[in-house]
Nucleic acid binder design. Structure first.
Lengths: 128, 128
DNA sequence: CTGGATCCATTTAGATACTG
DNA sequence: CAGTATCTAAATGGATCCAG
């Protein structure tokens, strides 16, 4: 999605780009939900399908692969019949989650501001 | 992009959804760059076009409107000829930025892990 | 059970011409 | 200068079928 941070064309981008990369890593409809589920306890594929209602098989697999590729999830295959695969959160993912709850704290503190800002903005847009 | 957090269909989603909403607020290629620029000092429209190389007028305007709607940017119009419009970061945006740099700290600490994880993942995928 | 592969609808974003 | 409107290209996501 985002270009690499090499050869930033402005100092603003040089500062913003690494942040954008992290955001992108957990952006999208599904990543955080899967992360949350896997942090609670190791989860199986089908279990995730139920925990994250509305996700398609395709998106579940894609999201799992991306999270695994970034070292946020660990995939363990049990060579049984039928196959059993478990996804568990890595220590790295748990730390990241800590920062995300920090963001959540910000959101809760500013929720009134945001709601008011949106209301003001939408009303003013309506008037025009 | 994301549905509202009303009537979560699972407890995992109930926990994840508010986080997803915040992430989405600053996700995408451009939001963070614009935020960074506006935090340094109030910036004008054309100035942003230069500070954020590659952005189109359309995306610049759309992103500005979204950030303004969420109360992260304040838009000030000076009724001069030619017109002058300045965008400045709100206190709320500055606090949010603090949390984002927290994420950045995480990224820097785990960058080696991530690079290694990706390398391992890609090599193993290649072997298959 | 755990996916991979394919096809198609939807969404999103870039280019650019036009305006007060 | 600071946008808006329109058209088009590209990415994204869902549905479905197939396989170890």
């Amino acid at each position: 999605m985002s270009d690499d941070c090499v050869l930033p064309k402005s100092d603003v981008q040089a500062e913003a780009c690494p942040i954008v990369q992290i955001i992108d890593r957990v952006a999208g409809k599904w990543s955080v939900s899967i992360l949350v589920a896997a942090i609670r306890k190791p989860v199986r594929y089908t279990e995730l399908e139920r925990s994250v209602p509305g996700i398609s098989r395709r998106m579940l697999t894609l999201t799992l692969r991306n999270l695994e590729r970034d070292g946020l999830l660990e995939r363990t295959v049990y060579p049984t019949v039928p196959p059993k695969v478990e996804y568990s959160a890595t220590p790295s993912a748990r730390e990241l989650y800590g920062h995300l709850t920090g963001l959540l704290e910000w959101a809760e503190r500013h929720q009134p501001d945001i709601i008011e800002a949106r209301k003001a903005y939408d009303e003013q847009a309506l008037a025009a």
